[in-house]
Design a protein around this nucleic acid. Structure first.
Length: 328
DNA sequence: CATGGGTGGGTG
DNA sequence: CACCCACC
């Protein structure tokens, strides 16, 4: 007689939560009259009207870019509201934003382990919560879904013209023939949309999120649909995603290493990079280029460093494999 | 100085 | 330790 047990599968459910133009939201909560208006937060207004460090989506819509100075922003969008970042001892003081971020973390940390990646970004390990939901309250058995989760984006899910996107998402979330991994992600999406609604209720802040099997995919996904939306990355969509993903979009390859990969190897996408063997990459970049960012996370994948493997190999390959969701 | 100061991590 | 690199 078989005993019910969790399928043996080490897929994790990782979410990356990214606050939408966070400094602006913090200032708009402080001054509710600014809500809905094109707004930007600036530091140091003496030189050309100050440097923009956050821009609301209303302001982006009228052409304001983060690289602008206050004066240029006024030119592009005369109605823009410029708010100064607090100053302490002659320096920009980001503490109010840091504290606001802590409010968000205290909501998010209820459902899983939390790793603060910056003032306005958090990774969540929802593996356990998703596994539990799958056993106790699987989406398959759910009658109706919150509207919020139906607004999720599912990479690789084709929405035909004229068909109802929310209905397609609903079917994806509760289809019974899904792989175990996809079901876990569906549970993750349910949990994340609940968390995002709770964050909004308790802090008045909106955020966007990515839900995937590892940190890097989750981070990529959270930026795909902003503001106030979430994006799911099923394993089956990863190969396509990487095939067209410019190398420089990948964390840690946005700088000089990414440029040299393009020049030395002629690769433009992560898919191109994966064509190269470890040996080839070692010839170009040496055996030590592999481990910079290891040892920095609460998650095994990112925290175990050299112990994952007896051998050294180039950082670019390590990163590319993580994107594929492969275990090292 | 003029996106940019802070931060975190790696390397020699 | 000082310096470089990468990110927000």
């Amino acid at each position: 007689m078989p005993v019910a047990r969790r399928e043996t599968c080490d897929a994790r459910v990782i979410a990356h939560i990214d606050m939408d133009c966070f400094y602006v939201q913090v200032e708009q909560r402080k001054q509710p009259n600014l809500r809905g208006l094109p707004t930007a937060v600036i530091q140091y207004n003496s030189y050309k009207g100050g440097a923009l460090i956050a821009v609301s989506y209303e302001a982006r819509r009228c052409g304001v870019k983060r690289s602008m100075r206050g004066d240029e922003a006024k030119e592009a969008c005369p109605q823009i509201q410029l708010v100064q970042v607090p100053v302490a001892r002659g320096k920009a003081d980001l503490n109010s934003y840091r504290n606001a971020g802590s409010e968000v973390v205290s909501v998010l940390s209820q459902k899983g382990r939390c790793e603060r990646a910056s003032i306005d970004e958090v990774y969540l390990d929802l593996t356990h919560a998703a596994e539990t939901m799958l056993m106790e309250a699987s989406p398959e058995s759910m009658q109706d879904f919150e509207d919020e989760v139906l607004k999720s984006h599912v990479l690789g899910l084709e929405i035909e013209d004229g068909s109802d996107a929310k209905e397609e998402v609903r079917k994806w979330l509760c289809r019974s023939d899904a792989s175990y991994q996809d079901k876990l992600l569906a549970c993750g999406a349910l949990i994340v949309s609940d968390l995002r609604m709770q964050v909004l209720k308790e802090t008045e802040f909106t955020c966007s999120a990515g839900i995937a099997h590892n940190k890097m995919l989750a981070k990529l996904a959270s930026a795909m649909n902003k503001p106030a939306q979430q994006t799911i990355v099923p394993h089956s969509s990863v190969e396509q995603l990487l095939a067209t993903l410019p190398i420089k979009k990948m964390k840690h390859l946005g700088g000089k290493l990414g440029s040299s990969l393009q020049i030395d190897l002629g690769v433009n996408t992560v898919g191109d990079l994966l064509q190269f063997s470890e040996e080839k990459l070692q010839q170009w970049y040496g055996i030590n280029t592999g481990f910079t960012e290891l040892g920095c996370g609460i998650f095994q994948e990112e925290s175990m460093g050299k112990k994952l493997r007896g051998d050294y190999f180039p950082r670019a390959m390590v990163l590319a494999r993580r994107f594929l969701g492969l275990r090292l």
